[in-house]
Design a protein around this nucleic acid. Structure first.
Lengths: 178, 178
DNA sequence: GCCATATAGTTTCATATGATACTATATGGG
DNA sequence: CCCATATAGTATCATATGAAACTATATGGC
């Protein structure tokens, strides 16, 4: 799909009420990508600081712990497909977690290039310790929102993600969601 | 505010259906901060590539153009307050735009430390050229969503941002939105 | 007026990120 | 079996980011 320009055909909305306001109909505060980015940065920053301060985990590392806790042993390629992270990010996160003995690699009989990553008991314990906190953060963030609003919000976010993916590489919508 | 743990009180959702699933009630795919981050990254990446490829602008630079187009001359501190960007980011963005003659600094009579930034004619022209494209991207992203959904989405994003800010530094909710 | 403190903006530095190149293993055609 | 190509994962490099230090100006107490 190609995004064709509007305007310049002469039909653009031109308001000349006040002197300073732009005549483009674009207001940053109401611009969805901006709102999305600002909200995400605020939330991510909050969460990232919490994981970093209390547990010495980066967000990618925490995601690794989560998917391994959920799905059991996975290779890095599987983790890349499952989460939406770069393979370099996954590689580095895994190295850090291995070093801390929170995950372990085991030989992958089926493929000598890859290893299977899985939580160690310590990793499982840490995940179990952090998870309630993560849920508490989520609960605090959405306190005041109705469950219906939250469900709708998640659905809308998924749709934005899919739309962005399609507009971008024409890569098919993310298959990551079970 | 302190986040008290849930669970352990006995009312947490505990599913023990399958063997591998963690017993924490946390699923990454349904975790709001994760969904938010992934959606934001997808959208931001799309937008950033567009501005970079076609106009050689970073997203922060584009935001500067926007707020200066909307509000007229501003100092960097005002831009920091208006957008949600670090002062270093604003400083560097401004330097780049000045170098390209898209904005100009003028002496601030009221304060010798700061200068007033304003769009040059070229900057105004570029903003007017990009704005329709930006709006087209937004339109493409939300195509298929009802206007009510979009309005609700923006409102929910604002609330998340406010909640994150309060949970974070106890800094008061962002005053950036006019 | 003079100094202590605050603020606007820049520079420096340490870290995070991802594109690209690289190594090692896999796989299929001949 | 051998080679061309693909893939899993790592290393390298160039860039982006923001915290903290720094410079220059402002402001208020005395």
């Amino acid at each position: 799909m190609t995004l064709q320009r509007r305007g310049s055909g002469g039909q653009g909305p031109r308001d000349e009420g006040d002197g300073t306001e732009a005549d483009t109909g674009l207001r940053l505060d109401g611009y969805l990508p901006y709102r999305l980015s600002v909200a995400s940065n605020a939330v991510s920053g909050l969460i990232a600081r919490a994981y970093e301060d209390r547990f010495g985990l980066t967000v990618p590392q925490w995601r690794l712990l989560c998917v391994l806790a959920e799905d059991g042993g996975l290779t890095q390629v599987q983790i890349v497909a499952r989460t939406v992270m770069d393979k370099v990010t996954v590689s580095r996160s895994a190295q850090g977690l291995v070093k801390r003995r929170l995950i372990a690699r085991s030989q992958n009989a089926a493929d000598g290039r890859s290893h299977v990553l899985a939580l160690t008991p310590e990793g499982r314990a840490l995940h179990a310790e952090i998870a309630p906190l993560a849920l508490a953060y989520e609960a605090a963030l959405i306190s005041g929102l109705s469950p219906e609003d939250v469900k709708l919000l998640k659905r809308l976010l998924m749709r934005l993600q899919t739309a962005a993916g399609q507009l971008s590489g024409e890569a098919e919508p993310p298959r990551s969601l079970g």
